[in-house]
Amino acid sequence: MKKQRGFAMQTLARVAVFAALIAVLGVPGTLNVFGAAVPITLQTMGVMLAGVILGSWRAALAVLVLLVLIAAGLPLAAGGRGGLGVFTGPSAGFLIGWLPGAAVTGWLVERGGRSPSTLRLFLACLIGCVGVIYLFGIPVWALVGGMSLGAAALSSLVFLPGDLIKAGLTAVVARGTQRAYPDAVPAVHQERVRSAGGR
């Protein structure tokens, strides 16, 4: 029972830390390139880091906590935005996409074993926190912006170079973290949970 409580407290602490990290990465504000209605922010990198270090469900929980706080009115979205209005604008789909994006990223990393390579971490970020987030973000941007899906997809290409850089940096940081702290590997989290539960 004490072990399970210990793991629960560790989980809550990790979730809180990464929810805070994603929020802090929004402090520098936003960058609108070529007048795009959807801004570029560093918060996506926080979502990537959550996925590769926390694993699937913990990362999703960290993102969910942040989104709930934003919806409640706290100015934690990039540029100091908060409230339900954030979820009705052009970037709403990208914000909502953080949740499945973090989960997919973590799921892919978990399947990399106890020592996922930098390449695997990078690809997990690309598939989860670029591919999945775009999958949610582009249709909503098209709908809210009154443009075709193709036009929104074409406009979203402006984000791609920055997202590739963020994915690369995340992979390097995560790999270094996992070398220094092996327990930071999501697969290890899963093993510890199974052993604590007696399964």
Rank of each mutant, 00 (worst) to 15 (best):
K2A: 15
G6C: 10
G6M: 14
F7K: 12
A8C: 11
M9I: 15
M9A: 15
T11W: 01
T11R: 02
T11N: 09
L12M: 14
A13R: 06
V15A: 01
V15N: 00
A16N: 02
F18E: 01
A19V: 00
A19R: 00
L21D: 04
L21P: 03
A23D: 03
L25P: 12
V27R: 13
G29D: 08
F34S: 14
G35D: 09
V38M: 10
L42H: 03
Q43F: 07
T44F: 04
G46M: 08
M48C: 07
A50M: 02
G51Q: 07
V52C: 08
G55N: 10
W57H: 03
R58I: 02
A59D: 05
L61W: 00
L64C: 10
V65M: 01
L67D: 05
L67C: 09
L67S: 05
I70R: 01
A72Y: 01
G73Q: 05
P75G: 11
L76A: 03
A77W: 11
G80D: 11
G85Y: 02
G85K: 06
G85V: 06
V86Q: 08
T88V: 08
T88G: 15
G89L: 03
S91K: 00
S91W: 01
A92V: 05
A92I: 04
G93I: 01
G93N: 04
L95V: 03
G97N: 03
W98G: 00
W98I: 02
W98T: 01
L99C: 04
P100S: 06
G101V: 04
G101Q: 07
A103F: 09
V104N: 09
T105R: 09
W107C: 13
L108S: 08
E110V: 05
E110T: 05
G113N: 04
R114D: 15
P116I: 10
T118L: 13
L119Y: 08
L119F: 13
R120C: 06
R120S: 08
L121I: 12
F122P: 06
L123T: 12
L123C: 13
C125E: 10
I127Y: 02
G128V: 08
C129D: 15
C129N: 15
G131D: 05
I133V: 15
Y134E: 09
L135N: 03
F136C: 15
I138H: 07
P139E: 01
V140T: 03
W141C: 01
W141Y: 12
A142T: 03
A142G: 06
L143D: 00
G146I: 01
M147F: 01
S148A: 15
S148R: 13
L149P: 02
G150L: 12
A151S: 15
A153K: 12
A153N: 09
A153P: 12
L154V: 10
S156Q: 13
L160E: 07
G162V: 10
G162A: 11
D163C: 06
L164Q: 13
A167H: 12
T170E: 11
A171S: 09
A171W: 06
V172H: 07
V173M: 13
A174P: 07
A174S: 12
A174C: 07
R175M: 10
R175G: 13
R175I: 11
G176V: 09
G176M: 11
T177M: 15
Q178R: 14
Q178T: 14
Y181W: 14
P186V: 07
P186E: 04
A187K: 07
V188D: 03
V188T: 06
V188K: 05
H189K: 08
R192T: 11
R194D: 06
G198Q: 12
R199G: 11
R199Q: 11
R199N: 09
